[in-house]
Design a binder for these strands. Structure first.
Length: 730
DNA sequence: TTGCTGCTCTTTTTT
DNA sequence: AGAGCAGCAA
């Protein structure tokens, strides 16, 4: 392999970022400046030119998808010698380490990974165990607090010590209880994965030494979004050599609420003396108006290092702003634009993306897209692996692997309903805690029950089912194990018997789960991991995000939150719901920090656009089932006006609608009817901006109210109000 | 114990 | 508007 090939096509700064292999390196990479390219070429350069073996490199990315893509791109440069190269998220990397080493910390290696729902139910239990009432002490808030502590690397003792008020005292107390429950269940939550890895390295220097000497070169992507524990982990791993390359952009720091600490990147040069700094400021993605607009917004942040992005792409469309009267109108506008642009601009659907601030906003757009048969893909929202039936199946599997997994057991014991209700579960819990045994043991005792427990026979049957599953599933491949579970538990049968459309959907989801499990086995056939196949499968499932499953290659319009849009790019972007209290979100407007993060989020959304950026808002919006009136986002005013074009109704219109009660129709799109100068009669050929070519079937109404029934070639029969339709003669 | 009804609460964003 | 939950009847 030619040495030069890893540097080919890189600009001088990118090249420097690749070639500076020794010591700490900070790459400040503006949006669209080719940072992924730098990372992949750097890895290839390390291995291909410097002769570093693959196992000597660790690359940490933000999502599993990014990890997969990175590995793929490195393989393209180097060939398939990347097996021992570790690329993963912080969480997946920690899981792999812990599966090998966690026995040092007194957990057993079959530990379960608890997601948010599992963790919440355990917090609830912890609250009760501390003699408090979950209705009074909000479990969600406590969970949030615990998570924040974990992100800061604080264990219960430290949290209790630093608690400054009664609330914190109480939370710290529950935190301690919660950790005991986790330990009893042999389970870790997301935060633990990081915290325990750091603890492991701290307490067992020899274990740390093993990994620190293995990974001679470490790369971290999206460094602006790392939290304190992640920082400490990286510090531990690089203590020996300091060969650390971090890539990030302070302007794209959008996870402060999750514990990301922007100090990590701002203080990097102090924390790692003799840091080389490379700035990537040339943008390869967007046209000048988009870049000017986005920079205009983010430069309103006071706490910001100055940075100048530039692009060679002069010209290009202005940023388009549309202020709709209602949220429904907004959705109609966006979908109408997509349809028109797909036709006239000759674009394929995958070139469009719709970004919103909150998941709940997706619904109207989905409905509208559905109405016009536009293929689309929603990223996020209700996650596949969190759907009730999918999670039920997985909990059976979890229980087979880890009999102490109380959250899984509680979930599964009466699914499908088998007569083991709340009372019986409580009795088993009592039994278990009295004997200091697991919940499963509690059930077992109940099942043997000579005491007059009415449900004893049913519990016994469940225990037998469980033992059967353990025998048949433990050594099986995940897909086979799941099939056995769904069969023997009667789960599938219960759904089939149900027969309702919802049940049909559930069955469909379970089939999809089986397919996913089969795909998994195929992909991991030659894995040299020392976890069992089921273990790896469960680990993966626990840590996948929807973004990971998102392919982005099919002929579909993409819908997602702005957070999920990070790292992606699209030719045409619609950033919607730009209203005060939505974007910026009401929850973040209180303090300057929160507001600045919202602004960065807006910047991230805007800079995803390559050619055309559309920003929309609605004056009136239904929220929580009631009407709300909004004001256009301040971010819209922060965009330099010379790069903006207002489309459709102006702000005056929106203001009128807001103050004037009855909502007025928007005439700005009204065109002269196609009938001008001649009669419209059935048989006339017309072209509609959205539905395309068609033939008039019938005419009704007069003047402005004239309606046409049109048979469209592609869209079927629709009734169209001539006034709004902007029809042309075809 | 189940399943129904009517009430509450939600919404930030997610590895 | 919709989901999730508590409370109640069968």
């Amino acid at each position: 392999m030619e040495n030069a090939s890893f540097l080919d096509g890189l600009n001088p700064e990118q090249r420097r970022a690749v070639e500076t292999t020794e010591g700490p390196l900070l790459v400040l990479a503006g949006a669209g400046s080719g940072k992924t390219r730098v990372l992949t070429h750097r890895i290839a350069y390390l291995m291909g030119t410097c002769g570093i073996p693959p196992e000597g490199v660790l690359a940490v990315t933000f999502t599993n998808k990014a990890a997969g893509e990175m590995r793929e791109r490195v393989e393209k440069l180097l060939g398939p010698q990347t097996r021992d190269l570790w690329v993963g998220t912080f969480h997946s990397t920690c899981v792999r380490i812990l599966r090998r080493e966690i026995s040092h910390l007194g957990y057993s290696r079959g530990f379960a990974i608890y997601d948010e729902a599992d963790s919440l139910s355990l917090v609830k239990e912890a609250i009760t165990k501390r003699g408090l009432d979950p209705k009074v002490v909000d479990p969600r808030r406590i969970r949030w607090r615990i998570d924040a502590w974990k992100n800061d690397g604080m264990k219960p003792a430290a949290a209790a010590e630093r608690a400054t008020d009664i609330d914190d005292d109480q939370a710290a107390d529950i935190y301690a209880q919660y950790q005991r429950l986790l330990a009893d269940a042999n389970a870790l939550d997301f935060g633990d994965l990081l915290v325990l890895t750091v603890e492991l390295f701290e307490r067992f220097p020899r274990v740390l030494a093993h990994y620190a000497s293995r990974w001679q070169y470490i790369l971290v992507d999206e460094y602006q979004d790392t939290n304190r524990v992640q920082y400490r982990l990286i510090r531990q791993l690089t203590s020996a050599h300091g060969n650390l390359c971090v890539v990030g952009d302070p302007d794209q720091s959008i996870y402060g609420w999750r514990g990301a600490d922007i100090r990590n990147i701002l203080d990097f040069e102090e924390d790692y003396p003799e840091t080389e700094v490379v700035r990537l400021e040339r943008n390869y993605r967007s046209t000048q108006p988009i870049l000017t607009g986005a920079t205009g917004v983010v430069s309103n942040n006071l706490a910001r290092k100055r940075k100048d992005l530039y692009t060679d792409r002069e010209g290009g469309d202005q940023i388009r702003i549309h202020e709709a009267a209602t949220d429904r109108d907004e959705a109609q506008f966006v979908v109408g634009e997509i349809l028109a642009s797909a036709r006239e601009g000759d674009r394929s659907y995958q070139e469009f993306a719709i970004f919103y601030r909150t998941n709940a906003q997706s619904r109207l757009f989905e409905e509208e897209l559905l109405k016009y048969d536009v293929p689309h893909e929603v990223v996020g929202g209700v996650r596949f692996y969190e759907r009730a039936e999918v999670k039920d199946a997985l909990c059976y599997l979890r229980l087979v692997i880890n009999p102490r997994d109380t959250a899984a057991l509680r979930r599964v014991v009466n699914r499908p309903t088998r007569g083991i209700g709340r009372t019986t579960v409580e009795r088993a819990e009592l039994e278990a805690s009295q004997r200091g045994e697991t919940l499963l043991e509690g059930f077992r005792v109940l099942g043997e029950g000579t005491s007059g427990v009415r449900s004893a026979a049913k519990v016994r049957a469940f225990i037998q089912l469980y033992e059967l599953l353990v025998r048949e599933c433990t050594a099986a491949e995940p897909a086979d194990a799941l099939a056995i579970i769904l069969d023997r538990s009667g789960y599938m049968k219960a759904l089939e018997k149900d027969g309702s459309p919802e049940a049909e959907g559930r069955i469909e989801n379970l089939r999809e789960l089986l397919t996913a499990a089969e795909d998994f086995s195929r992909a991991n056939a030659d894995s040299d991991d020392d976890r069992t196949s089921i273990e790896i499968f469960l680990d993966q499932v626990a840590l996948v995000s929807d973004l990971d499953a998102y392919a982005g290659t099919e002929e579909t319009v993409s819908l997602m939150t702005v957070h999920n849009a990070k790292g992606l790019e699209f030719p045409v972007v619609f950033l919607v719901g730009l209203e005060e209290r939505i974007f910026p979100h009401s929850g973040s407007m209180g303090d300057e920090q929160g507001l600045e993060e919202e602004r960065r989020l807006c910047y991230v959304g805007m800079t995803r656009a390559m050619q055309q950026l559309n920003l929309t808002s609605a004056a009136e919006r239904v929220r929580y089932g009631s009407r709300n009136y909004g004001v256009p986002s301040r971010f819209l005013d922060e965009i330099p006006q010379e790069v903006v074009t207002q489309i459709g109704s102006g702000r005056k219109k929106a203001a009128r609608s807001r103050s004037g009660g009855g909502h007025e129709l928007d005439y700005s799109y009204a065109q002269e009817p196609a009938s001008e100068g001649g009669d419209v009669r059935p048989g006339l050929r017309v072209v509609h901006p959205v539905f395309g070519a068609g033939t008039v079937v019938s005419v009704s109404g007069n003047g402005l109210d004239q309606k046409l029934k049109i048979q469209f070639e592609r869209a079927g029969i629709k009734t169209i109000l001539v006034r709004y339709a902007n029809l042309e003669l075809g």
